[in-house]
Computed example of a mutant assay.
Amino acid sequence: MTTKINSILKLRYFILVLSISLLSCEADVREVYLYTPGKLEATSTNTAIKAGETVTYTSTSTKVRAIKWTFQGGSPGSSADPNVTVKYAKGGSFTTTLEITYVDNLTEKKTFAVEVEAPAIPPVVVPVDGLKIYSDSPDFTKTAQTLNWVSSNQFVISQVAEGGYEEAFRSFTLPATPPAAEAKWAMAILQFTAVTDISSYTYLNLAVRTTSTGKIRFRMKDASNTGYVEFDATSNLYGLKRDGNWNMVQIPIAKYKEQNPLLDLTKIKDILVLRSVDPEDVRTLNNYTFDIDHIYLSK
């Protein structure tokens, strides 16, 4: 009888413990979320720029504990900000690296490449027996006899005190509004006050700055004959670019003679004549402006 009572008590105790355990488990139920790792996401605004321009880098990465940018060739050289604008002062091929440290201390990297076009550097001019025609450069020891700039048609010639290839320069600009801009052609002349022998020289050199898309001829004239070299907007002939920068142009004088064999290089009156090209109508070219500086002859 005693054994049976003990068995019943043990069974009741087991049921009680089981019930308490079940109730306890039910109370400890929790919602479980699966862990999603962080993701590296970043962009740059450009991959090819000119020196002096900027690129903006932006990180929109998730679950980030730390950001580290490294900008090769740029300023600033590094940053911990998610959004950074970087300036590149020199030309070259550069790499930007983004290193992300996530909240779980894992790291990931991404690189960006940027090509920076170097700024145009005016060449150092060391003239060989150079004949100075229009130049502020101290390199020239010879000076041509007196010259005159003449606006023959339409071009308004002005001297600008600074900002030239050397400092001061001449600007040849079409008038913006009528009645001055009535004709479809334009011309301006740089002429000697007396005929000059340039037959011992090989090149006519000059610095030119323009964005004009119009054709233009650089002419040379004796008393009655004219030879010319024609430039369009795409060829970059003899270094004449239409990029808005100062570019040194070196024209073989023989090309003037080749265009017109009658041109007498021993008796040149007009050393430089800027002339538009027919049938092109300069009135339709709102950027028909040519800045001229640093003109000289060299052997």
Rank of each mutant, 00 (worst) to 15 (best):
W69C: 04
T107Q: 13
M220W: 01
R12K: 12
V160C: 03
Y203N: 11
S78G: 07
V128E: 02
D232L: 07
L204F: 11
T266E: 13
R12I: 15
I20L: 15
S78N: 13
L18A: 15
T226G: 02
T177V: 14
S93W: 03
K255S: 15
T43Q: 13
T177C: 03
D278A: 14
I67R: 09
L190M: 12
R170S: 00
T141S: 11
L285W: 01
V150L: 13
S151M: 10
S235G: 05
K221P: 00
K269D: 00
H294E: 15
V229G: 03
Y102R: 01
S224H: 01
L9R: 10
T107C: 06
Q159M: 08
K241D: 14
D81G: 07
P37Q: 08
V277A: 03
D197T: 03
I5L: 15
S61L: 08
N225G: 02
R170V: 00
M1S: 14
D243A: 04
S24C: 12
E53R: 15
K110I: 08
K10I: 15
G52I: 02
A120K: 11
A144C: 08
D293N: 08
A188K: 02
N247W: 00
V126R: 09
S224M: 06
V128F: 05
I133T: 05
W246V: 08
Y102C: 05
L204V: 05
K10D: 05
L147E: 05
D281T: 06
S135F: 03
A188Y: 06
A194M: 08
N245T: 10
T234M: 09
A113P: 07
A51W: 03
T70C: 02
V17P: 02
M1R: 11
V86Y: 06
T36I: 13
I8V: 14
N260V: 08
T234L: 11
K215V: 11
I198D: 02
I157T: 05
P123E: 15
T210L: 08
L9I: 15
D104R: 00
S298H: 02
K257S: 14
L147S: 04
T141E: 09
V195S: 12
T56H: 01
V114C: 02
N205G: 04
L16M: 07
F172M: 09
S276R: 00
C25N: 10
I198G: 04
D28R: 08
L147Y: 00
W69R: 10
Y134V: 02
I49R: 07
G38I: 12
I268R: 13
Y256N: 01
P76G: 05
V208K: 00
I189K: 10
K142E: 13
I8G: 04
G74A: 09
V64P: 03
L272F: 02
S135M: 06
I133N: 08
A181P: 07
I268V: 14
V282M: 01
T36R: 11
D222I: 06
G77V: 12
A66K: 13
W246M: 04
V160S: 05
K269W: 00
K299W: 06
E258T: 01
I133K: 02
G163W: 08
G91K: 08
Y33L: 13
